[in-house]
Amino acid sequence: MKSILFEQTGHPATVLTAKEVALPEPGPNEVRINVIAAPINPSDIMFVQNLYGIRPQLPSGVGFEGMGVIDAVGEGVEMPTGTRVSFTGTGTWSDYAIAHQRSLIPVPDAISDEVAAQLFVNPFTAYAMVQDSGVTEGGWLMITAAGSAFGKMVIQLCMMRGIKTIGTVRRDDLNNELKALGLTEVINTEIEDLAARVRQITDGAGVPCVLDAVGGTTTTEAIKCLSKGGVLIIYGLLSLQDPSINVGLLIFKELTIKGFWLTDWMRRADSKTRQDVAQNVISLLASGKIQLPVEASYSLDQIVDAVDHADRPGRWGKILIKP
């Protein structure tokens, strides 16, 4: 079988290679999955560069989520072979992958392979973060990098809940699409003053919560957009730059800045909460109410082209690996 591996950390296009490896065997409570599709997420790219919360044990596989069909099961697994599943693990960019049975989500026929491959990371993160934001119907939620796959998911969830959204972009080519998804207001941070525009949009009140994936100057400016008692939730650092924090704003506006990592959220959440999120996400995707577009698919042998494409600005959909 073939699998994408890296023996040293660095730029993915430089260090990732497709190699022939032995077919893995599932251990107790594990399954082997014949992988059909797996997405390229920012967390995957950061992992290869040794910038993620989980450090690679070299040589390492890559890819944290995917979908496929159970091919073999280990002792203690009740789910039968032939079951179509979405799953998480390390090394999903491969012909076959090993996953713990707790990470498996059976996929209904109504969900396509392309959507099922993206079922976990962005949908679960978006659903959990909108919940954690505390913003209710009629309130404002701001999202940086609104044109990302995650941003689009949040926009659609908020529209369904009656939450008004402000999204930041660096170019205007996706504005019409974002508006069509339900984005209330869009701000181009390259040509507009973010804090001034937010004050204008919210009649001077600011927003109670910002979901930020950018860092750097975008986060610095986003903090100024918060209302008194507001919360900034950071879930990424696309700029690879730390923000500058205005301590005076934190003190006198009683602001909160906190991080969000889905891995820890899943550990903290009880089984009922996890099941509720899974059922809601699956229902929304199966009904077509939430869209997860795919821009292009690549084989394992095309991994360099795939990661290069995933890094291009202005993408409108996810890049998938299809072994």
Rank of each mutant, 00 (worst) to 15 (best):
M1D: 02
F6H: 08
T9M: 02
P12N: 06
V15T: 06
V15G: 01
A18T: 14
A18R: 04
V21G: 00
A22R: 07
R32P: 07
I36P: 00
A37V: 06
A38I: 03
P39C: 08
P39F: 04
V48P: 10
N50P: 05
Y52S: 01
I54D: 02
R55N: 10
L58H: 12
V62L: 03
V62D: 06
M67P: 01
I70M: 05
A72M: 07
A72D: 11
E75I: 01
G76A: 05
P80H: 12
P80I: 11
S86I: 09
I98F: 05
H100C: 02
H100K: 15
Q101Y: 12
L104M: 12
L104A: 08
I105P: 00
I105V: 15
V107L: 04
D109C: 01
A110E: 15
E114A: 15
A117D: 08
L119W: 11
L119I: 12
F120M: 12
N122H: 10
A126F: 09
Y127K: 12
Y127W: 14
V130N: 04
V130W: 00
S133I: 13
S133Q: 10
V135Q: 05
G138K: 01
G138L: 02
A145F: 01
A146C: 10
G147V: 10
A149I: 11
V169E: 01
E177G: 02
A180I: 04
L181H: 09
L181F: 14
V186N: 09
E190C: 05
E190S: 14
E190P: 00
L194R: 10
A195V: 07
R197T: 10
A205H: 11
G206H: 04
P208H: 02
T218Q: 13
T220L: 01
E221C: 00
I223T: 11
S227A: 15
G230V: 05
L238A: 15
G248Y: 11
I251Y: 13
I251D: 00
T256Q: 12
K258H: 05
F260K: 13
Q275C: 07
A278R: 15
N280H: 13
I282F: 00
G288H: 10
Q291C: 03
A296P: 04
V304K: 13
V304S: 10
A306M: 05
H309Q: 13
W316S: 14
G317C: 05
I321V: 13
